[in-house]
Design a protein around this nucleic acid. Structure first.
Lengths: 209, 209, 209, 209
DNA sequence: CATGAATGAGCATTCATTCAT
DNA sequence: AATGAATGAATGCTCATTCAT
């Protein structure tokens, strides 16, 4: 068995890692990858700049961790929406809503994805692109499975369910960007309902007879 | 009346402005906003760096012009798709295809949109965001009008036609990003068809009887 | 024929390069490679730091140029000593003296050789080591040739003449380090004479009969 | 009287000091003073970084101790060569050989001497320079004494014997550097013999009659 | 107008040293 | 005595922008 101090230290170390991520997220919610200097993140975390390097080997590593965390949260949001059950319309609505909710919570994700590409090493860029693609495929896959057990969509070809799922996430991003620009929160509900309606129709085969 | 030389000079000046944009586009098709240095653009344009400042007041201004030009091209692509006429399915398919085609041609647009956020001034960022939103609204509006004269969609509420149009562009972006990552060009056709099918369905009210 | 401005500009550029080297030499005569920051060199040269990079691609490049210049001067010093002619003793004495003179003038060379090794890239280190070795071989070769036409040494085997030449340069370095430490300039003359005497003897075969 | 534990503790402390020096020597045999970080030395010594500071007040102090130890070894090597006895040629040959052997064993010495200059304080630099000079004088003095009892050299003036001794060490360094560069171990023996021959001759007065 | 040398603010990263545990 | 997390000063290099020619 380990010494109790060892355990505590490990917990503290992990807590500090999280605190740094939190600080980075705060900074990135208003600045881009390049504007977000390590100086500022350190100061936001109330740590010396050098300390960051005890937790993350360099700037890209820090942001990758942040992305990782954001994506995990995203998957949780999607899973939550799915387990809710109910009719197709509700499923679509909830998933859209949760996606938007996630994007609002993790504004920094779009910022990083959008602005980090530049100075990342070739390898890091590739890794980031793959991470994004894989996470989306994962979420779309889960959603497509949920569609597969809905009465309205169970007869659709698999590829349509998958395409529909991806279209849903694309729509969520569209709404998010639109709303981010107009800042009119009252529109959001209406937009979500508009998209929901069309998505449901896109996924519904006309009942044969 | 103006001296004829004045006219010629003006034409030459405009031509030079375009040449600089061309050079910038070439550089940006492989580099991000930050990697693309003015040094390189100047050298690509076979001009001295200082000369660029006679045509654009600073780096953001240069890239704004580039975006402006890219969006104009985008509108032309969309209009072209619309005037083609034919059944809804063809309209959707062509618009998707042209959008993808535009994104491929103007890779730099996504790059700039994606990576410029950083060092733009607050004002410039706002302006860029609005430009993007307005251009999309414009294109979506045009497309919605085209839907309005299609037999399958003329009975839809206006808001559905607009939402459908925006969903189409969101889908195009989704496909583009996906393909940019996987580099498998053979998938594109299939993807476009998948999305087309769902979009048509989303826009089609079940015929009463 | 070239435009006159072109010529002038080139001359000015070259002059600036030299001025930078001079500034670097001044800084290095009292600081080591690491202590000598580009900030300080720039300020010594009365230029902005960034300007240095218009003339030398990085810190190692600047110091390599400095070494190159120093070695060229060294070869000139040695050649001068050789062409002086006269008996063996004078040749040895003059070469020792000139070597010491060079080391005093180019104090920075020892400093750089001595302190740069550290942060140079693998390739640069190799290059520096080879430069040092080659320059010494070159000088020793020239000196050995001069020995070959002296009555006292013409009968020596070639390898002895070469070894003697190298021993002379090793002796010069020894004296230089010694004197650099003790700062007693009056000793120098005596030391040179001591070493000269022994070197001449080392190079002189006992006359047969 | 001291408590026995006190004695043991002192011994242990001394042993730890030596262990740290060993670790430092291992690291310095492949890295320069600047590349050799305390992190690495601590890890090589299997100690925490902070612990080093219980034994040496700072980085220079650690390296001074290392130099001290290296010089002591050098003196032992020289003394060993001297006590061997035999004809002058053998004495010269053995001393050259042992010097080379020492330089090979204590590569780190040249490295430190060569690369430490930088961040040492003014005082430390002076101290190091004096240490080097004094150790050389000491060794040269011992060797000159040995020459004084050799039949071939006993009639030489004292200053010649001292100069010869110093020339020998200078030659050793020359050979060492040359060999370090060319990596051709087979040349070493020949070089040593060349230098031996000339040094013996330099030290030998033609017997009058 | 065109040029390109000069500028200098800005930033990621390293590492010797300290000190609370 | 041992630890190792925290510190923060220090520095090489980049690049948008200016301006004298």
């Amino acid at each position: 068995m380990e010494r109790p101090t060892s355990k505590r230290k490990e917990r503290e170390k992990e807590a500090r890692r999280e605190a740094i991520l939190d600080a980075a997220a705060r900074v990135l919610s208003v600045k881009s990858y390049y504007e977000a200097t390590l100086d500022e993140i350190a100061s936001e975390a109330e740590l010396a700049k050098g300390t960051l390097y005890n937790y993350y080997k360099d700037k890209p590593a820090l942001f990758f961790s942040l992305m990782r965390r954001g994506f995990d949260l995203f998957q949780r949001h999607v899973s939550e929406a799915i387990v809710g059950g109910g009719p197709l319309k509700d499923l679509v609505y909830r998933t859209l809503k949760n996606s938007l909710c996630h994007m609002a919570e993790c504004k920094y994700m779009l910022r990083v994805i959008i602005s980090a590409g530049a100075h990342l090493s070739e390898d890091n860029q590739q890794e980031l692109a793959e991470m994004i693609r894989d996470e989306l495929e994962l979420a779309a896959g889960k959603l497509a499975e949920a569609f597969a057990v809905q009465p309205e969509t169970e007869n659709l070809p698999e590829s349509d369910r998958l395409t529909g799922a991806k279209m849903l996430f694309a729509s969520a991003r569209q709404i998010h960007i639109r709303l981010a620009t107009s800042l009119d929160n009252q529109l959001q509900e209406e937009e979500i309902e508009n998209y929901t309606r069309l998505l449901v129709r896109a996924l519904t085969t006309e009942k044969p007879e």
